[in-house]
């Protein structure tokens, strides 16, 4: 086994040690320092898309996503400055304006990562205008449904379907504000030729966008513990 070098760095003024192949986020978590995340999920490749895990690094004016930034010797990281707090709050607000999130009538009420984030970042209200896009619900699958109104485009479902299940039934269509999740060649989910109905996408979805059909308001609880387990059992690197 090759030797792994150790780096020392500071996170929020605390001296911490890390393996050289670790990201800032991993090291922070190992040391009980909480950094908010949304698209990141242990067991899937990291994306750096939600921008919530941005941190400040001394000597650089650029904010860097901690989920994909490797540690470096002597690095001084701040995870919760006023500037970061402000940006995080705004980003969570932008999520709420983008689609039609109504916690009160959502299957994932009380079990939703977006809802929790709103609380975590101290979002008292959304001060940007809501966009109210006209979006559909795909309930053609026997057991699951996809409500685009609640999707945050974290692509966890796309990644789990590709990387873990190996079906790659899901992907993103289009780009920018008009992007949304599709199955196969955009036929309805129930007519997908490749879906194995494994339900992994439902479980990794941070919001109520993907849910089980028999669940009503606040009844949908996701479980993602299977993920690191599956990755480990398959002998993948992480």
């Amino acid at each position: 086994m090759s030797k792994v070098r150790i780096k020392t760095l500071k996170i929020d003024d605390r001296d911490v040690g890390a393996r050289e192949d670790q990201t800032i986020l991993e090291v922070a978590r190992d040391n009980g320092i909480h950094i908010p995340t949304l698209c990141q999920l242990d067991g899937l490749t990291n994306l750096g898309g939600c921008r919530l895990c941005l941190v400040e690094i001394k000597g650089s004016n650029k904010l860097l996503p901690s989920c994909v930034t490797a540690v470096e010797e002597g690095m001084e990281v701040s995870t919760n400055t006023e500037r970061l707090q402000k940006h995080r709050r705004s980003i969570v607000e932008l999520f709420f304006t983008e689609r039609n999130h109504v916690c009160a009538v959502c299957v994932s009420n009380n079990n939703c990562e977006l809802q929790n984030l709103a609380k975590q970042v101290g979002m008292t209200h959304v001060h940007f205008p809501y966009m109210y896009p006209a979006l559909s619900v795909d309930a053609t699958h026997d057991r699951f449904a996809l409500d685009h109104n609640r999707c945050v485009l974290c692509t966890r479902c796309v990644r789990v379907c590709d990387e873990i299940e190996g079906a790659h039934t899901l992907d993103v269509r289009g780009r920018g504000i008009e992007a949304y999740i599709i199955t196969d060649l955009e036929q309805v989910w129930g007519e997908s030729e490749t879906c194995t109905s494994c339900g992994k996408c439902v479980n990794v979805c941070p919001t109520g966008a993907l849910f089980e059909k028999n669940k009503s308001v606040a009844e949908m609880k996701k479980q993602t513990k299977f993920l690191p387990y599956l990755t480990m059992m398959r002998g993948a690197r992480r």
């Binding site: 994306l47 750096g48 898309g49 939600c50 921008r51 980003i91 932008l94 999520f95 304006t97 983008e98 940007f128 205008p129 966009m131 945050v152 485009l153 993103v172 289009g174 780009r175 920018g176 504000i177 008009e178 992007a179």
Partner: peptide
């Protein structure tokens, strides 16, 4: 910018659309 944004990150995807609306 709004129509060329790839949509991967939230600030660009939603922020450019918001700015355009304003």
């Amino acid at each position: 910018c709004q129509s060329e944004s790839c949509g991967k990150c939230v600030p660009c995807r939603v922020g450019t659309a918001q700015m355009h609306t304003i």
